[in-house]
Design a protein around this nucleic acid. Structure first.
Length: 828
RNA sequence: UGCCCGGUGGUGUAAUGGCAGCACAUCGGCCUUUGGAGCCGCUGGUGAAGGUUCGAAUCCUUCCCGGGCAGCCA
């Protein structure tokens, strides 16, 4: 009976730890031992607002990596670091709420740090850059700086102060720090390149003057570092190995790398932190940006940061969403580099999935309709105002390992859900209607024998009779009603208020269009049911008031808290949804329940997903869209020669006429002078234009740095002659195409650059011995009987699978033609 | 328009040159004292065109579409 609500051991959450590109990178670094087996991550919020579910994704990512890799033996650390470099708007209160939210989510940072503790060190790094001539004090006005930055298509102009001497810069910087200048009088800038095509590199600002009190450092400083300067250094100071941030910082990686490469001592560079960007979490039917959330709150569209309609962590917490569900959701959505919008139904699924096994079932009626059981006394043998106390299970039978029951009073007058009765039931309606019989959950079968209406024609009460033989919920004659409905006693149930929350916006992407997202606000996102009734057992079974003390580390990680035997905070109101007492407004005299998430309701009109028809329509639209795009793509194709200069044109013509290349190939080579030169030089050693062109374009080109093709070509460990000999080797069938690519890989690595030598050393000569290939094919087929059967069954695409196995076994040396023939032979 | 990043069923995500898989949603069936849960099944996808390769979602080229960058914000 006192079965604890939480299982003693939490389920291993790492089981489904998804593979993602960040973990791939970490695996690789661990493999290469880049960081001596350390994996150091961090969650770096600025304490100027509240956290939302998007931050939860980042928290789960960073702390989850620390947990998972620690379990695998790595030396992991994950810190909470406040990125408090801009005192405007930052506060201790925000910092506390953020730390609290991290705890609530179930994580304990290895350490809590503050960027503001590093201000002295940042300054030292700034001095270093100035001394190296890589930073200068600029005294232009804010407007001048903006104007001189240029645009995405026009280069910027250098500041007239750009060439100040190191000594002058040092002096000015010192005086900025000393408070000799007013806000905006000077800034410190990196000296990089005002003409860079990367806007971020046009002499980015490093420090600005701000005579503002910092919530932790007081008046210690009047210059504050910019994000791009501070963040990478914070990571370096903390020995962060993998610095994870969202995609919009991808451009900033250039300056992140630049600062570290130029400010850090040489010996720290090999282990310096690297930034990786992942996709931020977006949800349908809601907004998540700090700015938009703030606006909703300040305008009174919602009731505060913890309004349960909001996807702030405070809101989700108040609504009753368990942290374990949020963690699971965050793991399930995945980490990639493609931005998208996750359907809210996935979130709801995660919450239901979590609560299904954890929330005991009770009954509540949100919109009560009175039912008078006219044969009560006669059927139960009790007095009219007595109660038949029915024993009801807290758990359905498919929830294993959970037991427990309570008594539910069954009286002459009941309440049922108004929705569960129709005077004129539509097709497929399984519930109560005049003359119909339904099962009352945990009790009798009940038949509606009549109804009462008010002057307006609204049904005000029902008359009904129960079958005395069905107290157990079963009929001796085996009949089984279509529907089962929930109910409470009219006289013994308790009044309560229920708050139902729905998505805040009616549009799947409220902030995506031109229009203001306010236009999509759903006024019905909060529906209050003030006259709800709940079975009397509930208040006594509630765990301690949830309040803000819901520190159950994600509920399932620590032992259940005291309180009643059941110790539950969250319930399923049968057939409605999951609920818990509102932490602010519920009290012992006032029952107020928040709906955490409704139950899935396959009877209700589904407005979340798309119907089959809509799906079909979408498909047709997509096909049309594709057709259109095909046309657009074709129309956009232009003659590459159009933009060519005279030299390129000349090369193009030569490749076309003299070497007989295709227009595409000729254009690719002609466009790139260095590559063209290499190509023609290779041709001098092996005069087979098309094969050499293929190799140049498809294999060589990708190894070149786009920004400096000539330099990377010159830096190649081999010349055009060796390259030509490689092409010749494969062209003359001495090695298979795949083996040739292996050889090329080794040439790039540089230890041995003569193709023939590599072929000999690695034993990569083409294998075309028919008997040998036949034996290999036999073995491969014998090893995969299932696939062989499927192939013989007509799944001929599996030939590729078998080819793969042969190539694997022969280290890519097999002659493809002959191997294929052998396979066909064996497979019949 | 310069640069960077991204496009895989309706949605989110796997497949690291070798069988396009998983989850959610949808639809159908089974089961059910919750129209819940569970179980089984169906439908449906690599933005386009060329190229390389025995073999391409993956490599190359071009195009199309979407996002980001011109704060003394982060």
């Amino acid at each position: 009976m006192s079965e604890p609500l939480s299982s003693p051991t939490s389920p291993p959450e790492t089981d489904d730890a998804p593979s993602n590109f960040v973990r791939d990178i970490i695996d690789e670094d661990l493999e290469k031992d880049t960081h001596d087996g350390r994996v150091v991550t961090r969650f770096p919020p600025e304490p100027n607002g509240y956290l939302h579910i998007g931050h939860a994704k980042s928290i789960v990512l960073n702390f989850g990596i620390a947990e998972d890799y620690a379990a695998r033996g790595a030396d992991t650390t994950c810190r909470l670091r406040f990125d408090d470099t801009n005192p405007t708007g930052e506060s201790e209160a925000y910092a506390r709420s953020i730390e609290d939210a991290v705890h609530w989510l179930g994580y304990e940072p290895d350490e809590v740090r503050h960027a503001s503790d590093y201000f002295e060190r940042f300054y030292e790094y700034a001095v270093t850059l100035v001394e190296k001539g890589l930073a200068y004090v600029d005294s232009q006005s804010e407007e001048e700086i903006r104007e001189n930055r240029g645009t995405v298509t026009e280069p910027g102009r250098e500041s007239p102060y750009r060439d100040r001497s190191v000594d002058e810069n040092l002096d000015l910087l010192r005086r900025m720090k000393a408070g000799e200048f007013a806000d905006g009088a000077h800034v410190l800038r990196a000296k990089i390149d005002m003409a860079s095509e990367h806007m971020i590199m046009r002499d980015p600002l490093l420090y600005r003057i701000r005579h503002i009190e910092h919530y932790r450092r007081g008046d210690d400083w009047c210059i504050y570092p910019m994000y791009d300067f501070a963040h990478c250094l914070e990571d370096a100071i903390e020995n962060v190995t993998h610095s994870l941030c969202t995609l919009e910082f991808a451009n900033n990686r250039r300056i992140y790398d630049w600062i570290l490469e130029n400010a850090l001592p040489e010996d720290q560079l090999p282990q310096r932190p690297h930034q990786y960007e992942f996709n931020r979490l977006n949800l349908t039917y809601t907004v998540l940006s700090k700015r938009k959330l703030r606006r909703l709150i300040e305008d009174g569209a919602v009731d505060g940061w913890d309004d349960p309609r909001l996807f702030t962590l405070a809101g989700l917490r108040r609504r009753g969403v368990p942290p374990s569900a949020i963690r699971q959701f965050c793991r399930a959505v995945g980490v990639t580099r493609s931005p998208g919008r996750v359907q809210i139904s996935r979130f709801e699924h995660a919450v239901r999935d979590d609560l299904n096994a954890k929330a005991p079932r009770v009954m509540a009626v949100l919109d009560p309709l009175r039912v008078v059981v006219e044969n009560f006394a006669e059927a139960t043998g009790l007095d009219e105002d007595d109660a038949d106390r029915l024993e009801a299970d807290y758990w359905p039978r498919d929830i294993t390992g959970r037991e427990g029951t309570r008594e539910v009073p069954f009286t002459r007058e009941l309440f049922i859900e108004r929705d569960d009765f129709r005077e004129d039931p539509p097709e497929g309606f399984h519930r109560l209607a005049p003359g119909r019989e339904v099962r009352l959950r945990h009790g009798f079968f009940l038949t509606c024998t009549g109804l009462e209406k008010d002057d307006a024609g609204n049904v005000t009460a029902l008359r009904a009779e129960i079958d005395p033989e069905t107290r157990s919920g079963h009929a001796p004659d085996g009949r089984n009603p279509d529907g089962t409905i929930h109910w409470v006693s009219a006289t013994e149930s308790l009044p309560c208020e229920a708050r139902l929350y729905d998505r805040l916006f009616t549009h799947r992407a409220p902030d995506a269009g031109e229009e203001d997202f306010y236009e999509h606000l759903d006024p019905d996102a909060l529906v209050t049911r003030p006259a709800a009734r709940i079975e009397p057992s509930v208040p006594g079974t509630l765990a301690d008031k949830p309040k803000r003390s819901d520190r159950t580390g994600g509920a399932d990680r620590s032992s259940p808290r005291g309180g009643s035997a059941l110790g539950a905070q969250r319930f399923q109101f049968e057939r409605i949804g999951y609920f818990w007492p509102d932490p602010e407004d519920a009290s012992t005299d006032r029952l107020v329940f928040n709906q955490i998430v409704p139950l899935r309701d396959s009877w209700a009109e589904e407005d979340t997903g798309l119907t089959a028809q809509e799906l079909e329509k979408r498909r047709r639209e997509k096909e049309r869209e594709r057709q259109k795009q095909r046309e657009r793509a074709m129309a956009g194709q232009r003659d590459p020669v159009e933009d060519f200069g005279p030299e390129q044109r000349e090369r193009f013509e030569r490749f076309l006429k003299k070497h007989g290349l295709s227009r595409d190939d000729a254009a690719v080579l002609a466009e790139r002078a260095a590559l063209a030169e290499f190509f023609e030089s290779a041709l001098g050693h092996y005069d087979a234009p098309q094969p050499v062109a293929n190799w140049t374009i498809n294999e060589l080109l990708r190894e070149l740095d786009d920004d400096a093709p000539a330099a990377s070509l010159a830096a190649l460990p081999f010349g055009a002659d060796a390259f030509a000999r490689l092409v010749q080797l494969t062209d003359e069938d001495a090695v298979s195409a795949q083996a040739a690519r292996k050889v090329f890989g080794e040439m790039l690595a540089g230890a041995e650059t003569e193709p023939k030598q590599i072929v000999e050393k690695r034993n990569l000569r083409r294998l075309d011995d028919a008997a040998k290939l036949r034996r290999t094919a036999d073995e491969v087929v014998a090893e995969h009987p299932d696939e062989a059967a499927r192939y013989r069954d007509g799944e001929t695409k599996l030939l590729g699978f078998f080819m793969g196995r042969i190539m694997e076994r022969t280290r890519s040396t097999a002659d493809a033609q002959k191997a294929r023939a052998a396979l066909r032979d064996v497979l019949g």
